[in-house]
Design a protein around this nucleic acid. Structure first.
Length: 960
RNA sequence: GCGGGCGUGGCGGAAUAGGUAGACGCGCGGGUCUCAAAAACCCGUUCCCACAAGGAUUGUCGGUUCGAUUCCGACCGCCCGCACCA
């Protein structure tokens, strides 16, 4: 008989709820209590309900939270609903329901499912990003972004009013491109170059120009630029939301088109986002993903002149002097530049192309424009391009080099133009080979020769380069940059792959921007007092399929009236914020969820932040985790928060795959195929669901995977084979859980059948938290048996307060206490559970259980299987919940045993074992080992050349 | 192509400052209890050999060492991320 988990789990969930057992203590009442902030990536309440991946995530943080409460920490462990945005809205449209109503229903379902797992959340802090009381502060933060700029001198965000002050004082001047820089004269520098003369002071600008300068500095700004438009979703997307030319949500094609959009100036923070990764205890792979995404490269910009003589002869000389700036990370190879390439979209292409090349160039540009990013990437191997007819002058040696356009140079990175050094860049090498361009080596390997069928891309020693010959690559770069700067033809610089964050969406279900636009489309922030700006209820919320957002249909809402503003014809911004907005700062709101005066009270923020443990999936590596760090840094600069980074320690739980499947491959006419003949195994959707497909290695024939049962296969030296047909090899693999594969495990069913405690335990016992692992429902029974056994041992067997424990049992109890604590803190839940099972197995053999042992086991089980533990604790005679009862302590003296077993090896092979007192001397031990009856035959008649005794580990005799 | 991770029984996985490989769970085999079954409990379970004795064994091959799952080198396979980023 198993214990009645359904009743017990319900009972304790109600107890915790009514007693508010897991309410975090407010800082002002916490005394000297140390804190732990344990956070989950809060869920999107999708229509699909809870996934076992959620269970893995939340069980892990719940165990940690419960453990730390028992260790005397003031634990903050909250949750909420990230309910705005595309995924939720897509579900709503698919189910033909209004997002507001649908979201409410989904939240209710998620809450029920989460509560049935017995998670120790502080429910008084539950937040919902779609609640106006919450998004009021999302809008407030947006206004902060809108009203701030990134100070180029102090490298931090400051208010726009401060910027205006600096400009009025002439501390800053305005450059010809509209950017703002420190006034060189105010720094005590003489204006030396002609450029400085072009910089203008604030008072020299018209009102319109002043507004343009300010708007150009804001951290939130509008820009008319080519963006990722997704027709199927009816909205634009951020770069981070586009994967291989398709939308992350839904996998729909994405195209580039110019549109006016809201952008956030995340690029200003590129260096800080990069550098501060070093402060974080995050998985190295995740940090690396962020580093790659930011994509910092150090190099130089070099200015090339376009050669006059090669251009249209009819033009006068004054027209010449057209310059092209290129970016390179290898300025040391400048002497090896034998041609130049512009991106097809480069604005100078039109100007420099000669009459005879015009037709070819235009044809190529058109061809490129018509191709999707996907197509362009597909044939990266095969270089294409066209000669413009123009030549550029290499500033270091006056060499005239031909200018090409080619789609392997992207307008979106660097300057959209490169100097091509085919000897030292593989792409340039391939292009040069194809177009028969000269290849000039300027770097020689430290050892060995230059390859003749590829570019030499490594570092080496400069050759054929007058100013830098003989220098190593690092030195040569330095020298070359110095020379370029001295001659005014280039300068050292840093480029990033990171682009500004496209922040507006043409969708209904998101936070409205707290912005109004005048007739010229200039943006103004509304008053803080007008927040929250509520999302109007409209019936027709569906995307229009055009760039016109659905909110524009709320005609009355769009019209903006404010008696204090004289301007007429103001209209509200009708775009909405993207799904990431609410999750960019939710971890702060948990600290102070009901504050109506500020997003968070600074005193509370100072106490709780940073997050001590953050657990979630790796899929947000360059989305939520990058965006939230960016917002946090802005809030840090503006004094809203006290820490430079929000999440100290972060762990990604590994993906839980579906159950392992076995597939045998057949040809279309039913012939047997071996695994080695089946290549490129992948999935394909068919009418009957998703099928496993493969290609025949020799015939390229399409092979169909036939699912076979585990019991039908057997293992051989090189894989599995079918029992019924030994020639047939079988492929064993686990797939991502998906509805179409029909391999989704349902938490509802599992809890009903095995109980929440057993499910939690199983998910934690499957393997290391961070590792990807296949699901196997069959295995849950083991955890179910363990819990029933604990129940029988502690609730049904006599518990004896006076029973003495044997030394061995006592030793094991204390070792278990130590190991479970260590493993839990290190998030090694699988081995912690194994120790608990071992201790319980010992108890099973006892006729009666010593009370201290029973209590300690109940306490140690509590973080993992809290319902059962509470019930047992109560039955052991305790009136209160064990949620805050002290974790058992171990006695180091009890860990030591009086004797030990030592393995005895002869020539490294195990031949016997001896049991000796722990304090036995080496000579003693060696004598005992040599005399052991198991060992003796292996030593007889041989010379012992060496005796090795590793203290408390083993004995090894080397014989000849 | 670049970067990161991984490879251990029938399955999930333990164990690495080098020291008894396979903890713990599943599955499987046998037993106890029972009229029977379930549940529970006990025993066994890496492979080879009928058993024992013995031998082999942590993807493959090699190296260092008294001793290698652990360290080094080469190779094979799988997974993840990035990718014409100049």
């Amino acid at each position: 008989m198993s214990y009645d988990f359904t009743a017990i789990e319900k009972k304790w969930q109600e107890y915790w709820k009514t007693h508010k057992s897991f309410a975090a203590i407010e800082p002002e009442r916490a005394g000297g209590m140390p804190k732990k902030y344990v956070l989950d990536m809060f869920p999107y309440p999708s229509g699909a309900g809870l996934h076992v991946g959620h269970v893995e995530n939340y069980a892990a943080t719940d165990i940690i939270s419960r453990y730390f409460r028992m260790r005397g920490f003031n634990v903050l462990h909250p949750t909420g609903w990230d309910a705005f945005g595309l995924p939720a809205e897509q579900y709503a449209i698919k189910n033909n329901r209004h997002p507001r109503e649908f979201t409410a229903a989904n939240i209710a379902n998620f809450r029920r499912q989460i509560q049935m797992l017995g998670l120790s959340y502080d429910w008084d802090r539950e937040i919902d990003t779609t609640d106006p009381k919450y998004y009021k502060w999302t809008q407030w933060i947006f206004l902060k972004l809108f009203n701030s700029y990134f100070d180029p001198v102090d490298k931090k965000a400051k208010s726009i009013s401060h910027l205006i002050h600096e400009l009025e004082q002439d501390n800053f001047v305005v450059a010809p491109d509209g950017s703002v820089k420190r006034n060189p004269v105010m720094e005590g520098m003489e204006a030396i170059s002609g450029d400085v003369q072009l910089e203008r002071k604030w008072r020299e600008l018209s009102v319109e120009e002043k507004n343009d300068v300010i708007d150009g500095m804001r951290l939130a700004y509008t820009d008319e630029a080519p963006v990722n438009w997704c027709p199927a979703l009816g909205t634009v997307l951020a770069n981070e939301e586009v994967i291989d030319g398709r939308s992350e949500v839904g996998g729909f094609p994405v195209e580039r088109r110019p549109m006016r959009q809201w952008m956030l100036r995340i690029t200003a923070y590129a260096d800080r986002l990069l550098d501060d990764l070093n402060l974080l205890d995050w998985p190295e792979s995740l940090k690396q993903m962020q580093r790659n995404w930011i994509g910092r490269s150090v190099g130089a910009e070099v200015d090339f002149e376009v050669a006059a003589s090669k251009r249209d002869e009819g033009q006068g000389d004054e027209e010449d002097g057209e310059g092209i700036t290129v970016f390179t990370t290898r300025p040391d190879t400048l002497f090896g530049a034998t041609y130049m390439v512009l991106a097809p979209e480069h604005p100078l292409v039109e100007k420099i192309t000669t009459a005879e090349q015009k037709a070819a160039v235009n044809a190529y540009r058109e061809q490129c424009a018509g191709r999707s990013e996907r197509d362009r990437m597909a044939d990266a191997k095969d270089k294409s391009g066209v000669f413009t007819g123009a030549y550029a002058i290499n500033p270091v040696n006056e060499a005239a080099i031909p200018i090409f356009i080619a789609d392997y140079v992207l307008m979106g990175y660097g300057t959209g133009a490169i100097m091509a050094v085919p000897a030292h860049d593989q792409r340039d090498f391939e292009f040069a080979k194809k177009f028969n361009l000269s290849i000039k080596p300027v770097v020689k390997p430290i050892k060995g020769d230059l390859p003749d069928d590829a570019a030499f891309e490594e570092e080496g020693t400069a050759i054929n380069s007058p100013v830098i010959d003989g220098l190593t690559t690092a030195k040569a770069k330095e020298q070359m940059i110095a020379a370029l700067e001295r001659d005014g033809v280039g300068h050292g610089t840093v480029k990033y792959k990171l682009r500004d964050w496209l922040f507006s969406r043409q969708r209904y279900w998101g936070e409205p921007f707290p912005i109004v636009l005048d007739t010229q489309e200039r943006a103004y922030g509304i008053d803080e007092a007008e927040l929250p700006l509520e999302l109007p209820s409209i019936e027709d919320y569906k995307p229009t399929g055009t760039p016109e957002p659905p909110l524009s249909k709320a005609k009355d809402w769009v019209k903006y009236e404010n008696p204090r503003i004289a301007m007429r014809g103001l209209l509200r911004e009708t775009n909405t914020m993207p799904q990431w907005a609410g999750s960019c700062w939710y971890y702060l709101r948990f600290l102070d969820p009901n504050n109506s005066q500020a997003p968070v009270d600074p005193k509370k923020e100072a106490y709780w932040m940073p997050v001590d443990l953050y657990v979630g999936g790796v899929e947000h590596a360059v989305l939520h985790l990058l965006y939230a760090r960016f917002w946090h840094k802005v809030l840090f600069d503006l004094g809203v928060v006290s820490q430079p980074e929000p999440f100290g320690r972060l762990v990604n739980q590994g993906l839980i795959l579906g159950e392992t499947e076995y597939h045998a491959f057949y040809t279309a006419d039913g012939n047997v195929v071996t695994a080695s003949e089946a290549k490129e195994i992948g999935e394909e959707a068919t009418d009957a669901g998703v099928k496993l497909m493969a290609i025949h290695a020799k015939t390229s024939e399409k092979l169909i995977g036939q699912r076979v049962g585990e019991e039908d296969v057997e293992k051989t030296a090189n894989g599995f084979r079918l029992k019924s047909n030994p020639n047939m090899r079988v492929d064993a693999r686990a797939f991502k859980m998906s509805k179409s594969r029909g391999n989704v495990a349902s938490p509802d069913d599992l809890v009903r059948e095995y109980g929440a405690d057993a499910l939690r335990l199983y998910v934690m016992y499957m393997g290391p938290l961070e590792m990807q692992k296949p699901w196997n429902t069959r295995d849950i029974i083991g955890m179910s048996r363990f819990l029933s056994s604990v129940w029988r041992n502690l609730a049904e067997k006599p518990v004896d307060a006076n029973a003495a424990m044997s030394d061995a049992l006592q030793g094991q109890m204390h070792r278990t206490i130590k190991k479970v604590a260590e493993d839990t803190e290190a998030l090694r839940f699988n081995t912690a559970i194994a120790e608990l099972i071992k201790l319980n197995n010992e108890i099973t053999a006892l006729p009666a259980v010593p009370k201290s042992l029973a209590e300690n086991l109940a306490l140690m089980v509590a973080p993992f299987a809290p319902h059962l533990a509470e019930e047992l604790w109560q039955r052991l005679g305790h009136g209160e919940s064990l949620a805050h009862y002290a974790w058992p302590s171990f006695d180091p003296a009890k860990l030591v045993e009086s004797t030990m077993e030592l393995p005895v090896q002869v020539n490294g092979k195990l031949r016997g074992k001896i049991v000796v007192p722990v304090d036995a001397g080496e000579a003693d031990i060696l004598a005992r080992a040599a005399g052991d009856s198991e060992v003796q035959p292996w030593l007889a008649g041989k010379t012992v050349r060496k005796q090795i005794y590793v203290a408390k580990k083993l004995v090894n005799f080397v014989v000849g």
